[in-house]
Amino acid sequence: MRVVKLLRQVLGLAYLESRWVKRQPLWLVQGVVGAVGFTMIIYVWGSVDALRNLVVAYIIAGAWGLGLNIVAQRIGWDRINHNIEFYVASPVTLSAYFTGIVLGCSLFLASNLIPALTIALIFRLDLPPYSRYYQ
């Protein structure tokens, strides 16, 4: 039962923390356009070989961005509008709060990663260089 309750807490917080999507859906479009544009530039500069590290780069850079967004925006904003007090005076645990925020904000990461992964699949970037498939 404790696990179910914990999952509900995380789900509830993830939902509450993801509602910015309704106000600013273009942030997601911005992420997708940025990812596609970045891919095109990298492809023009270094062809498929340059694209090979694209997904890894997006995971690293996206995680940095996500972490920055969580710390600088979500938690900061929750402090300003007293959500923190509301959560502290509730059964919500710190781990559930943090996991919920990460999930709620992971749409940012997804808006970068999904186009990057799609491109990686299209170009078969999972294959090692100089393999017989490239010859």
């Binding site: 807490q9 509830g12 917080l13 939902y15 509450l16 509301f86 919500v92 919920g100």
Partner: peptide, 11 residues
């Protein structure tokens, strides 16, 4: 949403 999901967040 605010009422429902805050209650879900409380389990």
């Amino acid at each position: 949403e605010a009422l429902t999901w805050n209650l879900v967040a409380r389990g």
